[in-house]
């Protein structure tokens, strides 16, 4: 780079640092408010047991608490490499709250968290994500749990989320074996209640409803989704051979659909404008590239 270029870069850096230093900054509380992705409102819309994650700034900690479930501990399954054994960790619950931490400082990615009631008849499950690279969650999701279990077959990856109008598979298993032909109830904070039925592999395809209120779709404008979305619960209740009922639930969040708050026509218009701006290049006289 030329000396002028270096000088320009230094000046730009200085200017940026000055602006950053002098501009009013958000308080920690204000900043946290934009990151309370998991700050779920009361689950008044469901009676199923759920696990709620309380958000905080600490990236190495997820505080998970149980609702409508009398459990002694959380069971945490980290994602593991293919062929390696999935090691289940137990986290004690204090006042219904347990601290889930990633395995080491470097292993992020998905962790599956479940809690089973003391009588063994109800299970709540969710997933938490730590923002560091981690193994794919295939083995973690396949790992069989004792009793009734409802869990995702696949989890969203980078820049992807559960979103309205998208369809994702979930599986219902009893002692690790798929349960076919059972009803699964989908409930959302937007008020949707839908009954689905598992197929022969115990899989139920869930299409998330577009039931957001307008003000919810306007929240958080960032492209890769800081709209907090809203909660959903999938649940199934079946009876065993003794007539005792067992319930399994999985709760997480989904966001407004891909084009919510966006205009494809506007984007296409700007792209067309860009194309038109470049068209003189196509008509111009050819530069033969003679260089002195």
């Amino acid at each position: 780079m030329s000396k002028k270029g270096c000088l320009g870069l230094i000046l730009a850096t200085w200017l940026l640092a000055t602006v950053a230093h002098t501009a009013p900054q958000k308080t920690v509380a204000e900043e946290d408010a934009t990151h309370h992705v998991y700050a779920v409102p009361e689950h008044a819309w469901t009676i199923q047991p759920v696990l709620r994650r309380d958000s905080g700034f600490n990236r190495g900690l997820a505080l998970v608490r149980t609702e409508r479930l009398d459990a002694a501990q959380l069971s945490v399954l980290p994602a593991t490499e293919a062929g390696k054994q999935v090691i289940e960790m137990q986290v004690p619950l204090r006042n219904g709250k347990g601290a889930v931490r990633p395995l080491g400082k470097r292993q992020g990615g998905w962790y599956r968290v479940t809690a089973r009631s003391r009588d063994g008849r109800s299970r709540a499950g969710t997933v938490v994500y730590f923002s560091n690279p981690g193994p794919a969650p295939r083995e973690m999701l396949k790992h069989p749990l004792s009793g009734l279990d409802l869990s995702p077959v696949m989890l969203p990856r980078e820049h992807r989320h559960y979103r309205a109008r998208d369809t994702w598979p979930f599986v219902l298993r009893l002692n690790g074996r798929p349960v076919a032909g059972e009803k699964v109830l989908l409930e959302t904070a937007g008020g949707t209640r839908e009954v689905l039925v598992t197929d022969a592999q115990g899989v139920v395809e869930v299409t998330f409803p577009d039931d957001f209120r307008q003000e919810q779709t306007q929240a958080g404008g960032h492209g890769h989704g800081h709209n907090p979305g809203q909660a959903f619960v999938l649940s199934a209740t079946i009876a065993d051979e003794n007539g005792h009922t067992m319930t399994a639930a999985f709760n997480f969040r989904y966001r407004p659909h891909a084009y919510s708050g966006k205009s494809l026509w506007l984007g296409a218009g700007f792209a067309l404008l860009g194309m038109l701006s470049a068209t003189p290049l196509l008509r111009g006289r050819e530069d033969k590239g003679k260089v002195k």
């Binding site: 708050g261 966006k262 506007l266 984007g267 700007f270 792209a271 404008l273 860009g274 194309m275 470049a278």
Partner: peptide, 27 residues
């Protein structure tokens, strides 16, 4: 390609992205 219309910054970035993509393809 869709432009986010929820805020001015998203709108400006989305418009610039679409414009640049269109320009690059033809240029």
């Amino acid at each position: 390609l869709a432009v986010n219309t929820r805020g001015w910054a998203d709108l400006a970035f989305g418009a610039l992205r679409a414009f640049l993509a269109g320009f690059v393809i033809i240029a």
